[in-house]
Nucleic acid binder design. Structure first.
Lengths: 143, 143
DNA sequence: ATTTGTTGTTGCAAAACGCAAGAACCAAAT
DNA sequence: ATTTGGTTCTTGCGTTTTGCAACAACAAAT
């Protein structure tokens, strides 16, 4: 049995909250999965696998497992299809929404090749309102 | 000579602004360098190298080069010490501030081992005010 | 000339990633 | 019972990235 400090040290580089966050989702894929759930109504492995960025299946499994272990996502058998799993956000996962929105806004602002769609224009006009609205509609789906 | 589309494809996985952003700073180190500049008044290679997370020197050089190439940072000879370089944020780099603040807030909220310091408590109380205030004070230093 | 401070490089081992193929599992259809 | 189709997950293998340690390059100060 290891104490809390040992556990912490094995997992995190420092006690800086930014560093700790990046230890969890600081990679090129994790937040894209979160995006798919938050903004594209995707919920299953096969839907994530189909996204345009073409994540490899082994990487996807690994990231889903990490996000589940971190209690950002919850995995359940689909009510509609018993041979399928669906992933839902937890409150902790939903709280990533402001980060995702800010990243989207920055990316749209500085990439001519990333045309703002409806959501992007709304963000540019009133970011707080978009976060509030989305947060409200996602709230009803959290586990 | 390649056209813009080819250039874009070689660099980015898709035209999603979130994906494009992660293509630039989606790793465990880039935003820690930005944090050091924004919140800890660090400006030089040796100062970044000294941070508690202990980045390797080759990784640091690589990330600084990427951030400079992306026009997030600007590298100049130090006015005070001619054998030293200092890195400054550009407007594009400064615009990462809301992302950094949101990540810090999330990390502090969900890690018992990341006690909120003064800045963290301010963020919890009034996030927008902190961003506004910091943005204002950093604005005078951008290149 | 030597020392000191700062930035950057190199070699090598370990870890993570990307890709392709296919295995495991389950449910529904035949 | 067997097959089919859909979904999830694993494996092998080559590539890329990372981490680590030592050290090289350079300029300024002594």
């Amino acid at each position: 049995m290891q104490n809390a400090r040992t556990f912490f040290m094995e997992k995190f580089r420092s006690d800086c909250p930014i560093s700790c966050s990046l230890d969890v989702f600081g990679d090129k894929w994790s937040l894209l999965i979160i995006r798919d759930i938050m903004l594209r109504d995707k919920v299953s492995y096969s839907e994530f696998l189909g996204s345009e960025e073409k994540i490899a299946s082994n990487i996807l499994v690994n990231r889903l497992n990490v996000l589940e272990a971190e209690k950002i996502l919850v995995k359940e058998v689909s009510p509609a299809n018993k041979s399928k799993f669906v992933y839902s956000l937890t409150q902790k996962g939903l709280d990533l929404l402001p980060i995702v929105i800010e990243i989207m806004d920055w990316g749209a602002k500085y990439n001519a090749n990333c045309p703002r769609k409806e959501i992007g224009k709304k963000i540019k006009k009133d970011k707080a309102a978009v976060i509030k609205e989305l947060s409200r509609s996602l709230k009803s789906k959290i586990r």
